[in-house]
C-alpha cells in the first residue's frame, strides 16, 4: 500500500454516522473510498452541495454536476444543492463537523500552512481558510516528510499560514498526532516504525503518552 492510500484509510476511521464532512482535493477526497461499511457521512462540496455521491458513468455525467475540483459527480437521494453564499454559511457557521485538508506544514500550536510557497506556488486559498476557520474538527492529511526528507510537522510553520491554532488531528504515513493545549501528542505510529523513529523524523517536540497504539488500516 502506498503512503497516500495508507493515510486515506486511517482518516476514514475518523468518520462517524451522520457527520457533515468536507474533503479537500487529493488524499482527503480518496478517504471517501474507505469509509467503513455502515457509516454514512454527509459529504459537503464547497461549490454548493450536501450529499455528494460516487463518480458517474459516462451516460450519467451531467454538465451541471461537478465537485470543487471540477470532477463530474452524482448526488445521493436526499442531496441538496445551493449557491456559494449558502455553502459558506454552512462552512463558516460551524455546520461542518469535520474537514480533512492537505497541508505543506503544520506546527505545535495547531497552525497550518497550505496555500502558498511565495514566488513558487501561488494557487490561492480557495475555500480552505473558511473551512479551517469554521469546521468543528480539522484533520490534516499529509506525508510526514517533504521530498528532501524534511519534516512537515514543525515547531513553527515557516510558510505563510492559512489559519492559526485550528488543527485538531494530524494523520501522516508515519503517525497519528493529536494537537492539544500542551502540544503535540503522539497517539499512533505506523506498523513498521518505533516511537523513536517517529520522534527522530519530526521537527516538532512530541508528547509521548504511556501507550502509543499501532495504526491499523
Amino acid at each position: 500500500m502506498d503512503a497516500r492510500e495508507f493515510i486515506a484509510r486511517r482518516i476514514a476511521q475518523e468518520f462517524r454516522c451522520g457527520m457533515v464532512v468536507n474533503l479537500g482535493i487529493g488524499i482527503p477526497t480518496a478517504s471517501a473510498n474507505h469509509v467503513p461499511h455502515g457509516v454514512d457521512v454527509i459529504l459537503q462540496s464547497e461549490n454548493g452541495c450536501l450529499g455528494l455521491g460516487p463518480r458517474p458513468s459516462r451516460a450519467a455525467a451531467d454538465p451541471d454536476l461537478a465537485n470543487a475540483g471540477g470532477e463530474p459527480i452524482t448526488l445521493l437521494p436526499g442531496a441538496a444543492t445551493f449557491d456559494l453564499a449558502t455553502s459558506f454559511c454552512i462552512i463558516r457557521g460551524g455546520h461542518v463537523d469535520a474537514t480533512v485538508l492537505g497541508a505543506l506544514e503544520v506546527d505545535s500550536q495547531g497552525n497550518i500552512a497550505n496555500w502558498k510557497i511565495p514566488g513558487k506556488r501561488v494557487p490561492g486559498m480557495g475555500g480552505g481558510m473558511d473551512l479551517l476557520a469554521g469546521a468543528r474538527k480539522v484533520i490534516v492529511a499529509l506525508q510526514h516528510a517533504d521530498k528532501d526528507g524534511d519534516s512537515k510537522i514543525r515547531k513553527h510553520c515557516r510558510l505563510p499560514l492559512s489559519a492559526v491554532g485550528v488543527v485538531d488531528l494530524i494523520v501522516t504515513d508515519k503517525a497519528v498526532i493529536e494537537v492539544t493545549a500542551e502540544g503535540l501528542v503522539l497517539r499512533e505510529i505506523a506498523p513498521e516504525l518505533t516511537v523513536a523513529d517517529v520522534v527522530a523524523a519530526t521537527d516538532a517536540d512530541l508528547i509521548l503518552p504511556a501507550t502509543v497504539a499501532t495504526i491499523h488500516v
Binding site: E46, D83, L84, A85, S87, F88, I91, R92, N111, G124, M125, G126, G127, G128, M129, D130, L132, A133, G134, P160, L161, S162, A163, V164, G165
Partner: peptide, 30 residues
C-alpha cells in the same frame, strides 16, 4: 486573493446594500 466565502459575501453585500463583510476567516494570516 480573497477566501472563497469572503469573496461571495462581498458580492452579496455589493448587490444587497450592505456596508461590508465581517469575518474571522483569515485571522493570523497575511
Amino acid at each position: 486573493f480573497n477566501p472563497m466565502g469572503t469573496f461571495i459575501e462581498r458580492i452579496r453585500c455589493g448587490g444587497g446594500g450592505l456596508g461590508g463583510v465581517l469575518t474571522r476567516t483569515g485571522f493570523g494570516t497575511e
